[in-house]
Deep mutational scan, measured.
Amino acid sequence: IDAAQIVDEALEQGITLFVVNNRLQYETSRDSIPTELLNKWKQHKQELIDFLNQLD
């Protein structure tokens, strides 16, 4: 699994991931984030931050 897949998966569930001051953040209108997704974010945090920083 790679960062792009995780970002896409989040988007499919209505969650936008982004980076502020090198910290992973998210925006969503959902009430809660699925635990499975949160765990993936934690496991791949640095990859996600690097990936999202490249997009900007």
Rank of each mutant, 00 (worst) to 15 (best):
L17T: 00
V19A: 05
D50S: 09
Q25N: 09
E27A: 13
I6C: 05
L37D: 02
T28V: 04
K42I: 14
V7L: 08
A4I: 05
K40N: 04
Q46L: 09
I15K: 01
I33C: 04
V20G: 04
V19H: 02
A3E: 03
E27N: 11
V19E: 03
Q13S: 07
F18L: 12
D2N: 14
Y26G: 02
I1W: 11
N39D: 14
T28A: 07
W41H: 02
Q43M: 12
E9Q: 06
Q43N: 10
Q13T: 04
F18C: 14
N53R: 10
V19T: 06
I33S: 01
N39H: 09
D2G: 09
I15Q: 00
I33Q: 01
L11C: 14
Q13M: 15
D56W: 09
F51G: 00
D31Y: 04
P34F: 02
K45M: 15
T35C: 11
F51C: 02
K40F: 09
E36H: 11
N21H: 08
T35R: 11
Q54A: 14
E12I: 10
F51Q: 02
R23Y: 09
Q25I: 12
D56L: 11
Q5L: 10
Q13W: 15
Q5A: 13
D2C: 15
I49C: 04
S29K: 13
Q25F: 15
P34V: 03
Q46I: 07
K40S: 04
L52D: 00
L11R: 14
T35V: 14
G14Y: 04
K40A: 05
D31C: 11
L17M: 05
H44W: 12
K40E: 04
L38E: 06
E12V: 08
E27L: 14
N53C: 10
Y26N: 02
I6S: 02
E27D: 08
D56E: 13
L11D: 05
N53S: 12
E27M: 12
W41L: 13
H44E: 01
A10P: 00
L24I: 06
V7D: 01
N22C: 11
E36Q: 08
L17F: 06
R23Q: 15
R30Y: 06
E9S: 04
Q5F: 12
P34M: 03
K42E: 14
N22G: 15
A4L: 06
F18I: 14
L55W: 08
A4V: 05
K42S: 12
E47G: 06
V7Q: 02
I49Y: 03
Q13I: 09
N21G: 11
A4F: 05
L48D: 00
R30V: 07
G14E: 04
L17R: 00
T35E: 13
E12L: 11
K45F: 14
V20R: 09
L52W: 02
D56V: 12
R30S: 07
G14W: 05
N53K: 13
S32W: 14
Q43P: 03
S32F: 13
T16I: 15
L17N: 00
T16D: 06
E47L: 12
D31F: 06
I49F: 03
T16Y: 15
A10I: 02
Q54K: 13
L55F: 10
T28N: 05
D2S: 13
A4H: 13
Q13Y: 14
L17D: 02
K42Q: 13
A4P: 04
Q43I: 11
N21F: 06
N53L: 13
I6A: 03
L37P: 00
I1E: 07
E27F: 14
L37T: 04
A3I: 14
T16C: 15
D56N: 14
N22E: 06
N53F: 06
R23W: 08
L11S: 07
S32V: 10
E12Y: 08
E9G: 03
L11P: 01
L55E: 06
Q43C: 07
I6F: 05
D8W: 15
L24Y: 01
K45Y: 15
N39L: 13
Q46V: 07
E36V: 08
N22H: 07
L17E: 01
V20F: 10
D8F: 15
F18G: 06
Y26D: 00
I33E: 02
K45V: 13
K42D: 14
Q5N: 07
S29I: 08
L37G: 00
A4R: 14
T35G: 10
Q25M: 15
S29M: 11
L17I: 08
L11V: 06
Q5S: 12
Q46A: 09
L11A: 13
T16Q: 09
I15C: 05
A3L: 12
E47Y: 06
P34T: 05
R30C: 07
V7S: 01
L48R: 00
I15G: 01
L48F: 02
H44Y: 15
Q5P: 03
F51D: 00
D8S: 15
T16N: 08
Q25W: 15
S32I: 11
K45G: 09
H44A: 07
Q54T: 12
Q25A: 12
T16V: 13
Q5R: 12
I49L: 06
L55K: 13
E9M: 05
Q5M: 11
A3W: 07
E27S: 14
L17Q: 01
R23A: 14
N21K: 06
Q25K: 11
I33A: 04
L52N: 00
L48C: 02
E27H: 14
W41V: 12
D50K: 10
D2L: 14
Q43K: 13
V20M: 09
D50R: 10
F51I: 03
L48V: 06
R23F: 11
A10Y: 03
I6D: 02
Q43G: 06
L37K: 02
N39T: 10
Q25V: 14
E27C: 15
L38C: 10
A3Q: 03
T35P: 12
D50L: 08
W41N: 00
I15Y: 08
V20P: 01
Y26P: 02
T16R: 15
Q13P: 00
P34W: 02
A3V: 13
F18R: 14
K40M: 10
D56H: 13
